[in-house]
Nucleic acid binder design. Structure first.
Length: 293
DNA sequence: TTGTGTTTTATTGCCTCC
DNA sequence: GGAGGCAATAAAACACAA
């Protein structure tokens, strides 16, 4: 409890309205609070006239007083006793009034400072969130491009397979025709056999090799994409891409058996999570603000 | 003029420091 | 235990729209 020193007693005396507890104590007649308050005011006005002491109502400090107090507050926002007494004398105030003014001024300053800090933090948060949103959009655009490229690659490899099958059918047809005439021309017969052998080789070997090259390229592109977002090349095939699983893998079923690994198993946290790391919609708590309390 | 919201002055109770 | 600081609050003074 703030103790009143002897120099503050007048300040307490000129305080027009007594504390609530005193009002309650004075209400000994059973009147309601409003009526009792009116009686109290009348009594105190009467007391003022009767005692010759004109009680002042709570008065605001003059502009000059406030300016001087502000100037002192800027120099030092705490008030040592000597300075308090000196300032009070200069301004014609009670030392207690000066102390109260400084206390209230510190409270106002603290509130303003909190508002300023909140504004700075909010601006910083907003900028960060905008940055994160932009990165997210960029990532989505890159994912979409990658998907399109994969699709193209898939079509290309499918077309390549199709032409090999056509060539095979043609060679089979040629073989049948040549068998009809093999008796008549043994030289031509040999040529046809050689042709068929070449096509068989092509069917089992070259086309498979082409497809495997295509899949190898796709695999490498996956690795590159992984490096871009995970910062590590150790997680090839780590991207869980629906297209990569449903179409590419279906085509490659017989000749290419990728062993997909879920990204969560290889990286510390998924891409979305890394981006949402700062996307906290609630306002930041300020528990750190006054660590001494 | 009056109701209402904001600012300023002051009080109270609790806490820490010496 | 006294002095001083702080948070919460009361109450007067003030501003302003309807």
């Amino acid at each position: 409890m703030q103790q009143l020193d002897s120099s503050d007693s007048l300040g307490a005396l000129i305080s027009f309205c007594p504390p609530k507890e005193k009002n309650e104590q004075q209400n000994t007649h059973g009147y309601d609070a409003e009526f009792q308050a009116m009686l109290d005011r009348i009594n105190q006005e009467d007391l003022g006239y009767e005692t010759g002491l004109i009680l002042e109502k709570r008065q605001r400090l003059s502009l000059k007083q406030v300016k001087e107090l502000e100037r002192n507050f800027e120099v030092e926002n705490r008030l040592e006793p000597e300075r308090k007494v000196k300032l009070a004398e200069e301004l014609g105030l009670q030392p207690r009034q000066v102390a109260i003014w400084f206390q209230n001024r510190r409270t106002r300053w603290k509130t303003k400072q909190l508002q300023r800090d909140y504004g700075v933090l909010k601006a910083s948060y907003d900028a960060l969130k905008l940055d994160c949103d932009n990165l997210q959009q960029e990532k989505e655009a890159l994912s979409s491009t990658l998907r399109e490229l994969k699709e193209k690659l898939y079509r290309k490899s499918a077309e390549s397979n199709h032409s090999v099958e056509e060539e095979s059918l043609i060679s089979e047809f040629n073989n049948n025709v040549s068998e009809q005439y093999k008796a008549s021309d043994s030289h031509e017969n040999k040529k046809n056999k050689a042709s068929l052998g070449a096509h068989e080789n092509s069917k089992d070997g070259s086309s498979g090799r082409v497809f495997n090259e295509v899949m190898k390229e796709e695999n490498e592109s996956n690795t590159m994409f992984s490096i871009c977002f995970n910062g590590s090349s150790s997680s090839s095939n780590s991207m869980v891409d629906p297209f990569w699983f449903s179409e590419s893998r279906a085509v490659a079923d017989k000749t290419y058996q990728p062993q997909p690994v879920r990204m969560e198993e290889q990286s510390l946290f998924p891409i979305e999570e890394s981006c949402n790391f700062f996307s906290v919609d609630q306002a930041p708590t300020l528990h750190w603000y006054f660590p001494e309390q």
